Each structure stands twice: as C-alpha cells, then as structure tokens.
Amino acid sequence: MAVAHIILLKAKPETTEEIAQEVLKDVAGLKDALPDVIESVHLGANFSTRSRGYTHGFTMIFKDRAALDQYATAPEHVKVIHERIRPHFDDTLAFDYDVTEYSNPRLH
C-alpha cells in the first residue's frame, strides 16, 4: 500500500525565501538520488492563513512502509536534514499515512 509522507517546515526569522527555495530544491533532488525509494515529491511555500507559522512543506509518496523506512536512514536524506533543513528551519512537523484504496486518483 502506498504511503504519504508530509513534512511542514517553519522557517527561521533570518531564512530568506531564496534560501528556503534552495532547500526545497535539495529536497526535490532526493527523488533523483533515491529513484527506487521515492515515487514522487510535491513541495512549495505556504499561502494559507491557517498554517500556525509553518512556512513551507512537502509531500512524498512511497511504494510502501518499507520504502519509507529505507528513506529514513538513507545517507542522502540524512545529509539534507542536517546540512540544509536544520540550519534554516526552526521546527518540522511530520505526518505519515497509508494511502487508502478509495483515494482519488488511486495510487498503487
């Protein structure tokens, strides 16, 4: 069953939008670095007034929980967290779920 991995990021006050976009590009690059693990990446800057201070976010789709587990320990992922996300974002919120069979469109 496909798994969705949602991450919300809260930019530090000194983090410019230009820097935030560069970090998001690095996150997007994980799809190319781990093509057999990550099925898709969708990301961007928040425009909602209900974001509770979260400024950016991304969603990744994985084939299954085993792929998500593999991603969690992949050196490429760990490097992006430590070298790119943590220096520029104060807080993160993760939300992972199994994609239900009645999702539309249905994911494999």
Rank of each mutant, 00 (worst) to 15 (best):
I81V: 15
H77N: 04
V23D: 07
P87L: 06
H82A: 14
L30G: 08
H88W: 07
D90Q: 06
I7K: 03
I38D: 09
P87W: 08
A33P: 00
A20M: 10
F89E: 03
A11V: 07
P35A: 01
L24F: 03
T15R: 04
L8R: 11
E22G: 01
H56G: 01
D64K: 03
F47M: 12
D26K: 15
H77T: 03
E14G: 06
I6Y: 04
S103H: 14
G44K: 06
S51Y: 08
A20T: 09
F58T: 05
R106F: 11
K31P: 04
P35C: 02
K25L: 12
A28E: 15
E14R: 10
A28F: 10
A4K: 15
A20V: 07
V99M: 10
P105D: 09
M60P: 06
H88Q: 04
D26F: 01
R52W: 06
D64S: 11
Y54S: 04
K79I: 02
H77M: 02
I61G: 04
V41W: 05
L30N: 10
K25T: 12
L68C: 03
S51W: 07
K79D: 13
K31V: 03
E76F: 09
D26G: 15
N104K: 13
H56P: 05
S48V: 08
L68M: 12
V3E: 10
K10V: 00
I19M: 13
E83K: 09
E39H: 11
I6S: 09
Y71A: 05
K31D: 01
Y102W: 14
S48E: 09
D26P: 00
H88C: 03
